[in-house]
Each structure stands twice: as C-alpha cells, then as structure tokens.
C-alpha cells in the first residue's frame, strides 16, 4: 500500500522537484547556555532572485527600499506562514509555532536575501530545527558553511517518506 501511495504522491507533486533553492544561513552569536533567538538569512538562488527582483524592485534601481520590502513582506514572506516558513522549531522534542521578527531584505551577489530573527528562548541542548518543503517545490539547503555560531551542533538528514528534511541539533 505504501508503494502505491508513494507512486501516487510522485504524480501529485507533478510540478515539484524543486525550482527554488534557498541557502539557510543561521547566526547565533550571543548565546552560551540558552538560545534566545536565531538570526536567519535566506539566500535565494540567482535565477529565482532575478524573477523576484523583477517584481520587488519597482523602481528598478537595483536595491530594495522600505516600501519594496514591505510589499515583499506582505505578499511573499507572510504567506509562507501557511507552510510554517519551511521551518520546524522543536524545543524538547515538541514543535512550537515560529514567529519571525525584524524582516529585512538585501541583495548579495545578485541574490535576494531575506533576513529575520526567530525568537527561541530555550536551553541550547533542547533546541532542534528542521527545514523542509513537503511539496518539494522549494529546496531549503543547510550546510556547515552556512552556520555562523560557536555553539556545538550537528546537521542530520531526516527521512519523512515523501520528502526529506535537514535537521540541526544543538548541544
């Protein structure tokens, strides 16, 4: 039965496989025993960025200004709430709701970046994060070089049958 469901699922995600790649950078500098918050930088791939810029950069001056950031925030970033921002924050093994704050945007090397802070407030060894898109349309990519912290951590692959997730565990 699982095989049949898997096969049907493959077809359901007909236009997935993915089309957008996001480098997930995490910055945790202040924390020692507790993680108060995590600063995120999502870097979109260059091709997706060019499409985003076409829409966000209304005046076409190559920078993202306050009104353009506000437009992107309301029309593109906040709707990701439906997908839990592709981020599963677990504290003590339990998933907690994520509420990104201080949303900003920038352009680095022709790539659009979303910057935001995620409040955590938990002992570091109780914190784990998983990144995935169930529809496989967006690939959330976590690599060691994207981690900016002195805390000890491990990056693991998690098998969720129809999609996979990167899991970051702190210790």
């Amino acid at each position: 039965m699982k095989t049949v469901v898997l096969l049907l699922f493959c077809v359901l995600s007909l236009w997935a496989h993915p089309h957008t790649f996001v480098d997930v950078h995490m910055d945790i500098q202040k924390s020692k025993e507790r993680i108060d918050s995590i600063d995120f930088r999502w870097e979109f791939d260059e091709m997706t960025s060019s499409m985003m810029l076409m829409e966000f950069d209304h005046n076409g001056n190559g920078t993202i200004e306050a009104d353009e950031t506000s437009y992107a925030y309301h029309n593109y970033f906040m709707p990701l709430q439906e997908f839990n921002f592709y981020t599963d924050l677990k504290i003590g093994g339990k998933t907690v709701a994520v509420s990104p704050q201080n949303f900003k945007m920038s352009i680095r090397n022709n790539r659009v970046c979303y910057h935001f802070t995620l409040p955590v407030d938990a002992a570091k060894d109780r914190v784990a994060l998983e990144f995935y898109d169930k529809d496989n349309f967006v690939a959330m990519v976590v690599k060691k070089r994207f981690m900016h912290t002195t805390l000890k951590y491990a990056i693991k692959d998690v098998d969720y049958d129809f999609y996979f997730a990167y899991r970051v565990e702190f210790s």
């Binding site: 993915p18 129809f162 999609y163």
Partner: peptide
C-alpha cells in the same frame, strides 16, 4: 522503499542545486 526514494530525492536535489 521510502528510504530509497528519500535518498534518491536528496541526490537529485543536490545535483540540481549545483547545476543551477
């Protein structure tokens, strides 16, 4: 079977990431 599909999917994504 799902673990093979998952490993396959991860490989496909990582190749596409590099090619992109």
């Amino acid at each position: 079977m799902s673990e093979y599909y998952n490993a396959f999917l991860k490989q496909i994504i990582s190749w596409q990431y590099e090619l992109n």
